[in-house]
Design a protein around this nucleic acid. Sequence first.
DNA 1: CCTATATATTTTAGGCTTAAAGTATTTGCG
DNA 2: CGCAAATACTTTAAGCCTAAAATATATAGG
Lengths: 170, 170
Amino acid sequence: MDDTTALPLDAETKVSERPADHEAELRLWLRLFTCTTLIEGEIRRRLRDTFDVTLPRFDLMAQLDKAPGGMTLGELSKRMMVSNGNVTGLAERLATQGLLERRASPTDRRAQFVSLTPEGRKTFRTMARTHENWIAELFAGLGRDDTEKLMTLLARAKASARKAVTAGEK
Amino acid sequence: MDDTTALPLDAETKVSERPADHEAELRLWLRLFTCTTLIEGEIRRRLRDTFDVTLPRFDLMAQLDKAPGGMTLGELSKRMMVSNGNVTGLAERLATQGLLERRASPTDRRAQFVSLTPEGRKTFRTMARTHENWIAELFAGLGRDDTEKLMTLLARAKASARKAVTAGEK
DNA sequence: CCTATATATTTTAGGCTTAAAGTATTTGCG
DNA sequence: CGCAAATACTTTAAGCCTAAAATATATAGG
C-alpha cells in the first residue's frame, strides 16, 4: 500500500483522452485507509495484549457504558453500525464472560435489554482510561491546529461520502 | 458512533484534577474511524453488488496488476499488510475462479509466484475503472484545496502513529 | 376478532482475519 | 559436509462480519 508514488504530471494530456482521471481522490482514499488501518491495528494489538479483549467487544461495552439503563440489541446494532446477527454473537460472548447481562423487555417479548454488569462497568472504565492515553500517544505528533483542521476536513469528507451513499439509496 | 457530542468546556478544571484529558484526540480518532468505515462499507457493497467480488480479492488483484511478472505470496503479504495465512486463502479462492495462476519458483522450492491470468487482468481493469469513479463520487464534495490539505494532514497523522508504533517495538 | 404486515432477534452459510503451530526448504557457519 | 537457524508457506482454531432465511411477537386495518 504505497501512496508515496509521484503523480504523473501530464498536464499536456487532453481531458478527452483521459476522461476519468481521479488520481488525487484515489490517493486520498488510500492514505485515509492506510492511516486508519495502522492505528486500528495497533489499538487491537494493545487491547489484546494488555486486556485480552477484542476491539468489537470494547466498542460494544463503550456503547453500554454511555447508557446506564441499558438498551435493546437493535439499538446497539444501530449505534455500532453493524448487523443484528453480529451483536447477537458479541453480546453472547460478553455475557459468558460475566461482563454483560440481559433482561427481557417488560413491554415487548421479542426484545431484550442488555447492560454492563458492575464488573463489566469496572473493567470497561479501566480499559477506557488506558485506551484514551494510547490514542493521545498515537496522535502526539499532531499539533492542536492540525487536530482541529483534521476534524473539520474529515467532517466534510464524511458529509460528502454520506451524500453519495444516500443518493444511491433512493 | 456519534462524534457530534458537545465538548465539556471546563476550562476552569485544574490540570492536576484531570491529568489525562485527551478528549480532542479521542474525538479525532472516532471521526477518522467512522469516516473510513463509511466509505469502506460503501465500496464493499458496490463491489459485491456490481461485480460480485470482495474488497480483499480486489485489493489482491490490484497488487498483482502493478506487478506484471507476478510475485511471491510473501511479497504479496507484505504489500497488503496482512498475514501469510490470509493471502494463502485469498489466492486459493482467486485461483479457483480462474483469475489468478500460480507457478513454482525456479530457484526456491518453498516459494511460489502468483500472477493474474489474462482473464483476471481484464476483469480487474474493468473493475478498477469503475472503482476509481466511485471514489471520486464519494469525495466529490471536497474541493481541490481540501483534498490537498487532507493529504498533508493524514501524512502527518500517519507519521505520528508510525512513530508511536515503532517506539513500542524496541 | 383476524389477518397482513412490520419488527426484534436468532440462525445459517460463507468469507475474512489473525496468531500459533506445523511442514518443507534454504542458508549460514563451524 | 552437517546441522542449526531462518524462511516460505500452509494449517488450525477462534473470532468477527454479513446477507438472507427463519422464528416469534407486535401492530394496524378491516
